[in-house]
Each structure stands twice: as structure tokens, then as C-alpha cells.
Computed example of a mutant assay.
Amino acid sequence: MIADKLGVSVSTVNRALINKGRISEETKRKILKTAEEMGYRPNVQAKALSSKDTLRIAVICPRDFYFKTVIEGMESYRKEHEEYRIKLLYKCDDFQSVADQLSALQECEHDEVQGILISAVHPTQLNKQLRLLFKKGIPTITFNNDILGGPRIAYVGLNDRVAGAMAGELMSKYLFSGARVACMATTSAAMGLRERQICFCDTVQKSGKNIEICGPFEYCDNFDLDDILEKVTHILRTEHVNGIYANNMFGTYAISCALRKLGMKDKIVAIGHDVNAELDAFIRDGVLDATLFQNPFQQGYQALKVMVDYLYLKVPVFQPILYIRTLILMKSNLEECDNRLFL
């Protein structure tokens, strides 16, 4: 990238290439010379955008406490780069289905958006609509949950296969040979969540410790805590497990609540995903042994950054998959959990 080669910001490169904004002649000369050497040309779409009042980008994702932090990351980038005049059009519902997201995508053309950021609730059922929009010049970047075989220009988020395997390896190290572990899995069709569950189970089975996996026991991600608590409580009372795992934040919260309610925090190893104030407290109290942190703030920040770079500069997406580093959070390193510091 020109910005990396010259040690300047992307916005400075943008001002030089579209000949707009404050920039010294010497810096502009260096940027234009480097752009020519690297084969870059001003993006036709960028010129069109420069004449508009705002850069309109649709954001499609569920509305919950996890995605609230993703959106905070996007808003942080937007405020840092006011020169782009970014307008984020949030199309968020409490429980997004495939139908909800298809409807939101159909609205995007009428809303005259230049790009779409989406956390896909299904790996394939959105592809037809995304392909139609791409043919009309509206690119898509997925975040948090990816699609298969669709026309997205990039994915920003966790490597869910690695995260599931890390959870499985950690659980295996905690447990003794011949132990039993319950696997809790959301019914969501989102690709990343399925990958976590599969890789967790596969890693535990290959640990060489003859650990028996009970489940997966599925739960509906509808935030009905009483319903999932009843399921988890029944499993803990009847399956005689030594460990329990959940593949998303809601499930992790539910297993933590059940362990505390039953007074079993010192008897069963609990590992899950994500962190918020409630899960932070469970870790500090020793109820939840570890959680895999996927940094939602940086997912939002980086997804919007990649989209803006793509729309304003003719910057080929050399890295179509941008993985956010997976961290294991335990009681000993919770103090380091600052969403805005980790990539």
C-alpha cells in the first residue's frame, strides 16, 4: 500500500490522489510518483464519492450486547476520519433471521449505499442478493460471521476454527483421563459458531485422554435465560460431567449462571467465548475458568477501515481474510482486557 510504503496516513494518500484537501506539494508529489510506480490509478468510484455529501455504508447485524461493542468500534473509526463524511445506516434487529437480513439487503439499493458491512446469519442463503448488489457496484465486507462462495471482498473477524480448537485444547489440559465434558451449542446457522463447536469436539477427541463428549446440547439464541438455564441445570444434574463448554456469549453466560446457582463452580471446569461485565465477574469469582476473546471493538473498527480504504482508493484487497487475534482470558489476565488495545 502507498500509505505503508511512504509512512503516511491513508487519508493523506486519498487527498493526494483525488486532489482535494490540505496537503503539501512535496508530499503530494511523492504520493503521486509512488502511485504511478505501483500501478495505482484514482478509483472511479472514489471520484464519484468525492462529489457527494456523505459516504453511505449499511451495517447489518443483530442488536445485542456483543454487537453493541462492534458498533462502538465502527463509530470510533468514523469519528477519527470525519474527512470521509461517513454515514452509517444501521439495519439491526434483536433477533435477525435470514429473512430479516435479505429484507435489509434489498433496502440497501434504495438507500443508495456505497458499501455493506454484514455479520451473516447464514453462510449461503444471502449470496444471491449479495451477488446482485455487487454487480450493481455495491461491495460487501463480512464481519464476525462469514459467507461461503459469496461475493464479499473481505472478511474481518475471529478464526473460529482456531478458537474452537484452543477451547478444546484448554479443556483437555484441565481434565483428567476418562473425564466427561458437555458441549452446549446454539442452534444458529452462522458458520463461525458451527466451526467452533466442531473444532472443540475434534480437539478434545484427539487429546489422547479418552475424554467423553456429551452432546452437543442445542439451545435457541433467543435470550430466554430461563429456558436455557433449565436445560443446563438438567445436564449438570444428570450427565455427571467434569467440564462444560458453550460456543457463544449467551451460552457462556447461561452455564456460568447455572454453575453458580448449583454451587458447582469448584467441581466443573467451564470454558466459553467472549466477555462482558457479567462474564468478567464470573471469571473473577472462579465460576468461569476461561473464555476465548474475539475483540468485537477491533472487528468493527477494522471492517469499516477496510471498506473506506476500498471505496476511496484503488487499493486491492491483498488480504481478503483479516483475522482478529484470539485471546484466552482468565482471572490472571483480565486486567489486560481493553477492547481498544488488542488486535
Rank of each mutant, 00 (worst) to 15 (best):
R260Q: 15
R260P: 04
K261F: 07
M264F: 08
K267L: 15
K267I: 10
A270C: 12
I271P: 00
G272D: 00
G272A: 08
G272L: 09
H273K: 11
V275E: 12
N276K: 01
N276Q: 07
N276M: 08
A277Q: 12
E278M: 13
L279D: 04
L279E: 11
D280E: 14
D280G: 10
D280F: 13
A281L: 11
F282L: 09
I283V: 14
R284E: 15
D285T: 04
G286K: 09
G286A: 11
L288H: 07
L288N: 07
L288T: 09
D289L: 13
A290D: 05
A290F: 13
T291G: 03
T291I: 15
L292I: 10
F293L: 09
F293M: 02
F293W: 01
Q294W: 06
Q294N: 03
N295V: 08
P296H: 01
P296Y: 07
F297Y: 03
Q298K: 03
Q298Y: 12
Q298G: 00
Q299N: 09
Q302E: 03
Q302Y: 14
A303K: 08
A303F: 05
A303Q: 05
L304F: 01
L304K: 00
K305R: 12
K305N: 09
D309V: 05
Y310P: 00
Y310T: 07
L311C: 08
L311V: 03
Y312W: 15
L313D: 03
K314Y: 13
K314I: 14
V315H: 15
V315D: 11
P316T: 12
V317T: 01
I321V: 08
I321W: 06
Y323D: 03
Y323W: 15
I324H: 00
R325P: 05
T326I: 15
L327P: 00
L329I: 06
L329V: 13
L329N: 03
L329A: 01
M330T: 15
S332L: 10
